Amino acid sequence: RYTFRTRGPEQMKRVVEWARRQNLSYRVEVHGDEYIIHAE
């Protein structure tokens, strides 16, 4: 189980790509310009 905090969509997309390659399920929360990605 991982939690990532990123700023801006570019970093968020990179984390999502990584999670997909690992076959993890993930969800993204948006708080202003901060993205929180939960993957497991």
Rank of each mutant, 00 (worst) to 15 (best):
R1G: 12
R1H: 14
R1D: 07
R1C: 15
R1A: 08
R1W: 12
Y2I: 10
Y2S: 03
Y2W: 13
Y2E: 02
Y2L: 10
Y2P: 03
T3E: 08
T3V: 13
T3D: 03
F4C: 15
F4M: 03
F4Y: 05
F4P: 02
F4K: 02
F4H: 02
R5E: 04
R5K: 10
R5H: 13
T6K: 02
T6H: 01
T6F: 08
T6V: 15
T6G: 06
T6W: 03
T6I: 14
T6C: 15
R7N: 10
R7G: 04
R7Y: 10
R7F: 11
R7D: 07
R7C: 07
R7A: 08
R7S: 10
R7P: 04
R7M: 08
G8L: 15
G8W: 14
G8Q: 14
G8F: 15
G8E: 15
G8Y: 15
G8I: 15
G8K: 14
G8C: 15
P9V: 15
P9F: 15
P9D: 12
P9M: 14
P9S: 11
P9N: 08
E10G: 06
Q11A: 14
Q11D: 09
Q11M: 12
Q11R: 07
Q11V: 11
Q11W: 06
Q11Y: 06
Q11E: 13
Q11N: 12
M12P: 00
M12Y: 07
M12T: 06
M12K: 03
M12A: 10
M12R: 03
M12L: 11
K13Q: 13
K13L: 14
K13Y: 10
R14Q: 10
R14W: 08
R14G: 04
V15R: 02
V15Q: 01
V15C: 14
V15I: 14
V15F: 13
V15T: 03
V15H: 03
V15N: 00
V16P: 00
V16L: 10
V16I: 13
V16C: 11
V16Q: 02
V16F: 04
V16M: 06
E17G: 04
E17F: 05
E17D: 12
E17C: 09
W18Q: 01
W18M: 02
W18I: 02
W18R: 00
W18K: 00
W18L: 02
W18E: 02
W18T: 01
A19D: 00
A19E: 01
A19S: 02
R20Q: 13
R20D: 06
R20V: 13
R20A: 09
R20P: 00
R20W: 06
R21A: 14
R21P: 00
R21L: 12
R21D: 10
Q22R: 11
Q22A: 09
Q22L: 14
Q22F: 12
Q22N: 15
Q22I: 07
Q22H: 15
N23Y: 05
N23W: 04
N23M: 08
N23T: 03
L24C: 05
L24G: 01
L24F: 09
L24R: 03
L24I: 06
L24H: 03
L24M: 13
L24P: 01
S25D: 09
S25A: 11
S25F: 12
S25N: 12
S25V: 13
S25W: 13
Y26V: 14
Y26S: 02
Y26H: 03
Y26L: 09
R27I: 13
R27N: 07
R27L: 08
R27W: 15
R27E: 09
V28D: 00
V28K: 00
V28F: 03
V28M: 04
V28P: 01
V28Y: 03
V28N: 00
E29I: 11
E29S: 06
E29D: 05
E29N: 04
E29K: 04
V30M: 11
V30Q: 13
V30R: 13
V30T: 08
V30E: 10
V30G: 04
H31S: 13
H31F: 12
H31V: 14
H31D: 13
H31E: 14
H31N: 12
G32E: 07
G32F: 05
G32H: 04
G32R: 04
G32V: 04
G32M: 06
G32Y: 04
D33A: 07
D33W: 05
D33M: 07
D33I: 05
E34Y: 14
E34G: 10
E34V: 14
E34M: 13
E34L: 14
E34C: 15
E34H: 09
E34D: 08
E34A: 07
E34P: 00
Y35V: 05
Y35R: 03
Y35L: 04
Y35Q: 02
Y35D: 00
Y35H: 03
Y35G: 01
I36S: 01
I36V: 12
I36K: 02
I36H: 04
I36Y: 05
I36F: 06
I37D: 00
I37M: 03
I37V: 07
I37N: 00
I37A: 00
I37Q: 01
H38F: 15
H38V: 14
H38M: 11
H38K: 06
H38N: 05
H38R: 09
H38I: 15
A39K: 01
A39H: 03
A39C: 15
A39P: 01
E40S: 12
E40R: 08
E40A: 11
E40Q: 12
E40Y: 15
E40H: 11
E40P: 04
E40K: 08
E40M: 12
